[in-house]
Simulated assay, not measured.
Amino acid sequence: MTHEILTADGLKAFPLPMPQEGSKDERGSALVLGGSVSVPGAALLAGIAALRAGAGKLKIATVGSVAAGMGLAVPEAMVIGLAETPEGGVDAEGAVECLLKVTKGCDALLVGPGLVEDGPTTTLAIRLLEALPSASFILDAAAVCGLASYSDDVRRHGSRVVITPHAGEMAQLLDRSRDDVEADPLDAALRAVELLGTVVVMKGAKTWIVDPEGARWLYEGGGVGLATSGSGDALAGIILGLLARGVAPMAAALWGVFLHGEAGKSLAASVGPIGFLARELSGEVPGLLRKAAAQP
């Protein structure tokens, strides 16, 4: 089966909602579950990106010891402090009751960035999927690696889930070597779709986006500068913001990959091909969205 190259022209088939008026509730509520004592910034990067992509409201749920600082760093967000493990990660079992309360009414959730324990994170993601039947989800980083053990559970909800693994996470998901995944990333993405029934964003120098209906898109890259710490968190946050606005999972994945890559190209032109920061990517997104809306 052939694939499509992801371009601005191709995205005209997936128009985004462009509200001219209305309340923040109409643009949706996004929640990021992520961060740890050692990597608190992952949740911050994702949350800001969700707002830059147009989400109306943001919640960030993270380890209790960094919650106050997170609230000051992202004053636009409601920040929820969760029980944490001695190692500085989210205590998945201890956090369940709190999360089931604060996620009610959320339109889209991102689980994974900056979380440090694969097994408990995956279990928590499944609990939330089961508890929130109308919300869209992105599973990233630690939330992806153990999904094979829950494939039947994920498939029941696959139509509203996007996963965003890099090669190492995909290797753990499929029980393959990283070298095998990097040698044929499309095959890995197709296998993950078959296993889980979700939209798959297979990140890399070139990114594949595949859905259960058989569509295959290739984004040929936003430049080497995107290979930097936190870049994937920004990508996940952009997709989250679009999902919160009511964009369908495949369209949100396509637009998210495109906006992330084009933000990289823009920063490469203004800053340099390498050396720009992941935190700078989301600031490019509103202008890119404005440009997309202006195109006939």
Rank of each mutant, 00 (worst) to 15 (best):
M1R: 11
E4H: 14
L6C: 12
T7G: 08
L16I: 09
P17A: 05
P19M: 05
Q20L: 14
G22T: 02
G22F: 06
G22I: 04
K24S: 06
D25Q: 08
E26R: 15
S29L: 15
L31V: 01
L33W: 10
G35H: 07
S38W: 11
P40S: 08
P40K: 12
A42K: 10
L44F: 00
I48Y: 01
A49T: 00
A50D: 00
A53T: 00
G54F: 06
A55L: 05
A55W: 03
G56K: 09
G56D: 02
K59A: 02
K59Q: 08
A61N: 03
V63W: 10
V63Y: 12
V66D: 08
G71D: 01
A73E: 14
G81A: 15
L82A: 06
A83D: 15
A83H: 14
E84Q: 15
P86T: 04
D91M: 04
K101F: 04
K104M: 09
K104S: 04
K104C: 10
G105H: 08
L109C: 05
L110M: 11
V111K: 05
G112W: 13
L115G: 04
D118G: 02
G119M: 13
T121V: 08
T121S: 12
T122L: 04
T122M: 03
T123N: 03
I126W: 02
R127N: 09
R127S: 13
R127T: 12
L128W: 02
L129W: 05
L129A: 02
E130Q: 09
E130Y: 03
A131R: 04
P133F: 09
A135W: 13
A135K: 05
D140G: 01
V144D: 00
V144Q: 03
G146K: 06
S151I: 07
D153S: 12
R156G: 00
H157N: 02
S159A: 11
V161F: 01
I163R: 09
P165H: 09
H166E: 00
H166N: 10
A167L: 08
A167I: 01
A167G: 13
G168E: 00
L174Q: 03
D175S: 15
R176L: 15
L186D: 08
D187T: 13
A188L: 08
A189W: 08
L190V: 11
A192N: 11
A192W: 11
G197Y: 12
V199T: 11
V200G: 05
G204P: 14
G204A: 05
G204T: 03
G204L: 06
V210S: 06
D211H: 10
R216A: 06
W217C: 01
L218I: 04
L218Q: 07
G221L: 12
G225H: 02
G230I: 13
G237P: 07
I238H: 02
I239R: 03
L240H: 09
L243I: 02
A244I: 00
R245S: 13
G256A: 05
G256T: 03
H260S: 07
H260E: 10
G261V: 13
G261T: 12
E262F: 05
E262A: 14
G264Q: 07
L267R: 03
G275C: 07
E280R: 11
S282E: 06
S282A: 14
G283K: 13
G283Q: 07
V285L: 04
P286N: 01
L289S: 01
R290I: 03
Q295E: 13
P296S: 12
P296F: 09
P296E: 07
P296T: 13
